[in-house]
Design a protein around this nucleic acid. Structure first.
Lengths: 139, 139
DNA sequence: TAGCGGACGTTATGTCATAACATTTTGTAT
DNA sequence: ATACAAAATGTTATGACATAACGTCCGCTA
């Protein structure tokens, strides 16, 4: 039972990109990441996009479709090592930019139910809430 | 109880853009719409984007975030006239490009439940399934 | 050690979206 | 009718996101 999309060993560029995302306190665009890595020697968008492709593929990074931006994966994951997450939900604060990642198994089940009843075969599912986080509503 | 985001009377550009989308059999990018309207006199992306803004605002058109494209609204809506739809789900076939729009009230409720428990105030919700539609799986 | 596959580097280009400004149209209150 | 405000329009330029196409380098293994 080898890990198909496991965290694999990162290449130099992948590690650089991941570290930038992991240190950030919110989603970053590919070009913002690139700017952060000029000093490390990166010159072209493709260098970042290629790293992002692999990181997204392995589940270490998520792409936020409604933002055209990327975040390091930070799902509640206290569980075991091997099993990676499936579909998750993102709540994106439009004021502070914070992104909360969480699972909603019931939601996923509902959508899978619809898909099955329609003969639709899902390859990827995007669920993103845009709004105000609790902190920003209070502050 | 006047309609706040009612179908309003469309301006010339809005009508042109909407007609293109309504005639299309799948999502279109703003630039594809523009190309289709060159003969009608449209010259610049903004003319299309401004029309799209209004159409999306009024609910006649939806933006597909994972595609950066737009579709005419076509939800099952057999119900009454006034009440427009809330959050809907899109199933996008990656083979034929067809988009199915449907409501999943339970899903919306689940997400609202999470939001309430977290103090998150949602302004917009994106739910998009990418995959293969029944027809394409069969064919 | 030859060859293969994956990552890398670079240039150029394609695609999606908006800023800023001037002008025209439309609705409305006088 | 007329003047005003608000909305829509037209145009140029620019910004932001993403990939095509090419060649090179490196590590693996047959």
């Amino acid at each position: 039972m080898s890990a198909d999309t496991a965290p694999r060993d990162l290449t130099r560029n992948q590690a650089l990109v991941f570290d930038v995302l992991a240190d950030a306190d919110g989603p970053l665009s590919a070009y913002t990441i690139l700017d952060a890595l000029r000093d490390a020697g990166l010159r072209a968008p493709l260098q970042v996009y290629r790293a992002l492709d692999k990181l997204v593929e392995s589940g270490m990074v998520h792409r936020l479709e409604s933002l055209n931006a990327f975040v390091a994966c930070n799902h509640p994951a206290g569980e075991g090592a091997g099993e990676s997450h499936g579909t998750v939900v993102f709540a994106i604060c439009e004021a502070c930019g914070n992104v909360t990642e969480f699972a909603q198994q019931d939601v996923v089940k509902q959508l899978q139910g619809w898909a099955q009843s329609e003969g639709f075969e899902p390859h990827a599912t995007v669920i993103e809430l845009r709004g105000l986080c609790g902190d920003c509503r209070a502050g």
